[in-house]
Nucleic acid binder design. Structure first.
Length: 126
DNA sequence: CTGATGACGGTGC
DNA sequence: GGCACCGCCATCA
């Protein structure tokens, strides 16, 4: 249980909503979780156990690539297994695999401001 | 309590 | 495209 008042839980819930074959950036997630930052999102992924139901592999950096770290190859393989294609430089095509967002019903359920939401997803890559 | 750290992002050069 | 900073804030030693 995260000490930050459910901050980690909110991040995990959001990541769980990313469908297979699509990816989101740390910044995308942090923007939809008030009080979080890209670093917090990364930290929330870091604390996940190996048998988690959170599809952590679908969260990558804003450049569309996988950050170098032990196990990054495992992440790429997992994504490729879902149909995500990587360019020669190891980056994804946001236009093809960018997550569309949790949707309006999520805003209503969580109380997230709809106007802010529209503005946010409009600025997303793709 | 204080300082360091980090799966990051944006800006400026 | 790359690189160097700075800001961000929960965690941890």
């Amino acid at each position: 249980m995260p000490a930050g008042g459910g901050l980690f839980a909110a991040i995990h819930d959001l990541v769980r909503m990313i469908p297979p074959g699509q990816v989101a950036s740390y910044g995308m997630i942090s923007t939809l979780v008030p009080g979080s930052t890209p670093r917090i999102v990364g930290f929330a992924m870091n604390g996940l156990p190996t048998d988690t139901d959170v599809p952590w592999q679908r969260v990558i950096n804003a450049s569309g690539g996988i950050s170098p770290r032990p196990g990054s190859e495992r992440q790429r393989i997992a994504l490729e297994a879902e149909g995500v294609e990587f360019s020669k430089s190891g980056k994804v095509d946001w236009k093809k695999v960018a997550w569309e967002g949790p949707g309006p019903d999520w805003c209503e359920a969580t109380g997230f401001d709809m106007v802010d939401y529209m503005s946010i997803i409009r600025h997303w890559p793709g």
